[in-house]
Design a protein around this nucleic acid. Structure first.
Lengths: 345, 345
DNA sequence: GGTGGGGCTGTGAACGCTAACAGTGAGCCG
DNA sequence: CGGCTCACTGTTAGCGTTCACAGCCCCACC
């Protein structure tokens, strides 16, 4: 009876649903569901009939209906701040790929201002979408408060930010990276090593300051106040000018990211300062352009692709009921190019 | 019979649903729905009672259920290629903000390889999510084929790519931008103007080649073969070396993006070529760092934020049933800095 | 040859919402 | 004063899945 009825209209532009497949295969919709979800207890012969029917109709399950019935979608929510920045953009990119490979969709919500309220709204929106987990890709202090306020039954993972109690995290080892960079300068003989830091409420900026301080302390060197910066080349340029004007004794600079280093390099060049002859410069990030700056920039490489992948790993483990392991730490790697050289004297 | 049963447990950690609000407010769930959706024909007094009940329970509508009932979610799907690149990242960022302001969520699917099949899969996944519209943010030729194969009832808009028949598009005026850049060089007296192009199958790369050609033709100058590039600083560096080696007569170079220009600048510096003294260089994109390159780069500014916003505008108009207007063209703006100067002679 | 238990399948009822339709009063007109 | 409209509200039936619960059949077992 399946042949003539039902589709009588002949104008089937609409997507076929489970019931259509069931009718064609001569089984119940539930059996189709079982085949789709790879439940055991489906006879091989039946399975093939259903598969054939699905193929013939071009059936694709309606994920919305599935999400409603399951009360959960196979979607990972991501709360991010500025996805234009190198780190977040790269992380997000690899995270999305890893998530898809694991069978999940990714839903990104960007937060224009790093205010707790804005983050809370973002969480609400993701929850309303029935996401099965959340990745908070917001590197500010403000984001940490949100993590603790997260629904406890919602698996979450913090990235590139501070770890909230009970929330697993994936981070690049900022402190160690900053130490590597600073130690490199110290080992080249630099005694006056300045730092151009990132914005105040960024956790990573703080960690890099910390690593720089520790490396100097380890070497018994004086720690000066870091110069302010906001990640932009412009602020690095300003820092470079300030450095020449106010701290001519400095021969080594650890800059908290490559873009600022780029600006600083420019300011030094304008001031007629030779790099690395008079001043050595180390950056952080290892952006693709670092190798082609003037001079090629010594910097600390961050493996954002790895961060994105580990994120998904951790979240999936959490969703499977695993307890939060200690923070997953992705190591950094110092890439020595020619913006650093031995201190004169 | 509804009062005693059901919630007896007292342990309501679960999210309240429409029926809970209805019960508390003493109305039917449908009235709650009307209030949520701002239908007319709800008495002000009733409205307030419902609103109060919603606030008390902390009710938030389940978007999945809504999507299922409406057979459409308030979600815009975005198919993108490499969201790490400056253009796509910036566009995506502003697009997301604009979409949220308009009450829409954004669902991004990145496509690792620019193959038609991969694009088609991405479309399938978005359709399975019942997205209400699709933005194709893929600048390759391969993406165009996908546009034509899109379900006709699914509003779509192409960005930064080629326009498929019937699909509205938002584009930056690449040809005009390239002309501005090239004309600028010509007006400075350069007669031998080279071009470092972007990858072969990128529509924008082709358009920039085109603009460069036209400007040269307009000026009655010879058109040489463009040098190959892949957007990366590395390829720009290689192009710079090739230029010195094979085309020493060239005094003006229009490079298809700023990152390649950065590499090219580096190659010229290494070869002892003064910019702009001996060679003038113009880039494209106006990345934040352009102003701080060595020397500050003359380039063509693209307003990606505007592109993202217009995208949402066009898609919303399309969803409202509007016909596709001609392509929305966002103008470029030449930003003259110091990497360009008068030709000697 | 009843009985029990797997393998396999079907039936209803959710999931939380919207759409369509059917009321219900009040006000107005002829 | 019957009937009409208009403002407002409730009832019912989906949307396309999954879940819980039966069933059925067949084979092994006593």
């Amino acid at each position: 009876m399946a042949e003539g009825t039902g589709e009588g209209g002949d104008h089937r532009a609409a997507r076929p649903v489970m019931a259509d497949v069931a009718r064609l295969a001569g089984v119940s919709h539930q059996t189709v569901s079982r085949v789709v979800n790879e439940h055991p207890y489906v006879r091989e012969q039946t399975r093939e009939a259903v598969l054939a029917a699905m193929a013939e109709l071009g059936y694709r399950p309606n994920l919305t209906a599935r999400a409603l019935a399951r009360r959960q979608s196979d979607t990972i929510g991501v709360i991010a701040f500025d996805t234009t920045l190198h780190g977040p953009a790269s992380t997000l990119f690899s995270l999305e790929q890893a998530a898809r490979t694991a069978g999940y969709e990714v839903h990104v919500v960007t937060v224009p201002d790093p205010e707790p309220q804005a983050f809370a709204d973002a969480v609400e929106r993701l929850v309303a979408q029935s996401v099965c987990g959340v990745v908070v890709l917001a590197p500010q202090q403000a984001a940490v408060q949100v993590m603790v306020g997260l629904p406890t039954d919602l698996p979450a993972v913090a990235v590139e930010g501070g770890a909230a109690p009970g929330v697993p995290s994936v981070v690049v080892d900022q402190v160690e990276g900053a130490r590597q960079a600073t130690r490199h300068l110290v080992e080249l003989g630099h005694r006056e090593v300045a730092h151009v830091r990132g914005p105040q409420d960024w956790i990573e900026a703080e960690a890099r300051v910390d690593g720089w301080r520790r490396a100097l302390a380890d070497a018994g060197l004086a720690v000066r106040d870091p110069l302010p910066g906001d990640w932009s080349a412009r602020s690095g340029y300003a820092a470079g000018q300030a450095l020449r004007r106010d701290h001519p004794e400095v021969t080594g600079v650890f800059v908290a990211n490559d873009h600022m280093a780029l600006g600083l390099l420019r300011a030094l060049a304008e001031a007629g300062v030779d790099v690395p002859g008079q001043v050595s410069v180390v950056g952080f990030d290892d952006i693709a352009e670092a190798e082609y700056l003037h001079p090629p920039l010594t910097t600390v490489h961050q493996d954002f692709a790895e961060v994105g992948r580990r994120c998904v790993d951790v979240l999936l483990a959490r969703m499977a009921g695993g307890t939060a392991p200690g923070p997953v730490v992705v190591p950094t790697r110092l890439v020595v190019r020619t913006s650093t050289g031995p201190a004169r004297g």
